[in-house]
Design a protein around this nucleic acid. Structure first.
Lengths: 128, 128
DNA sequence: TGCCATGTACGAAGCCCTTCGTATATTGCG
DNA sequence: CGCAATATACGAAGGGCTTCGTACATGGCA
């Protein structure tokens, strides 16, 4: 996971999520996925993915007429950077503060809380 | 906390953090604070704060020659929206996933973990 | 074989954010 | 009083992101 790789933009992240979840695929397939959620042109997705290739966010196999794109950055490290970025920008680097916000968020379900508690239990031994 | 208020941009957030922490103040004072961290022109800060006033992110008292700016959005609700936004964009709405990333982040200290555990304990009763 | 569907390449527009330079007004002090 | 310091207002440039239209190549099928 090269350090120089930029943090993906919104549109780029949406595409990476698909590639991470479903594996390498063509622009057409990605476009079909995105289309299910919102209206977006084919060439828009194509262009974005071409730029992502330039930025090394993805690689592509050009051996077939329809190029096959593959995520070139790790899901975990990208997500970690996204969190780290928010931490720095808004929470003075305090993970505790951010977690508190996450917990009070409408998205935090009882089930989430349960999972988180479990994570903490597992983490408590290997604490740094 | 009006729903229509936009999520603050980077530069705007940096200014809001100062206003939240130190209370209402002039452009000059905010500029001095920002200057301590990076090189930035006075009129840059002024312009940004003027735009923030238009967007209702801040209000300003113009009764004195040096206008006094005050945050017009609540710290908690803005931060909550930032987290919620990231949750939606990258973590499929799962707070548990995000917290996991936060915990594995370099910023998460042992002290943070302790605080978080305590938060969870307090939260476990009032779980939604 | 020839045409239509389907690809890629590429330029450019529109938007927002950030930044600054310049113009202009006002204040207070020597 | 007049000038230097300090304000605000405002226009505009530059960069990144997103979007799309258009041009062109290619491949498979009738």
């Amino acid at each position: 996971m090269p350090r120089g790789t930029p943090i993906p933009s919104n549109a780029e992240l949406a595409i990476l999520l698909i590639l991470w979840r479903e594996g390498p695929q063509t622009v057409r397939a990605v476009h079909d996925s995105l289309r299910r959620e919102r209206d977006i042109g084919y060439t828009t997705v194509l262009k974005t993915m071409q730029l992502m290739a330039e930025k090394k966010l993805v690689t592509r196999d050009e051996s077939e007429r329809s190029h096959v794109y593959r995520a070139a950055v790790e899901e975990k490290s990208v997500k970690r950077r996204l969190v780290s970025d928010l931490l720095d920008r808004a929470f003075d680097g305090s993970a505790a503060q951010l977690v508190m916000q996450a917990l009070s968020d409408k998205h935090a379900s009882a089930e989430d809380l349960k999972k988180i508690r479990q994570l903490l239990k597992e983490n408590s031994r290997g604490a740094r």
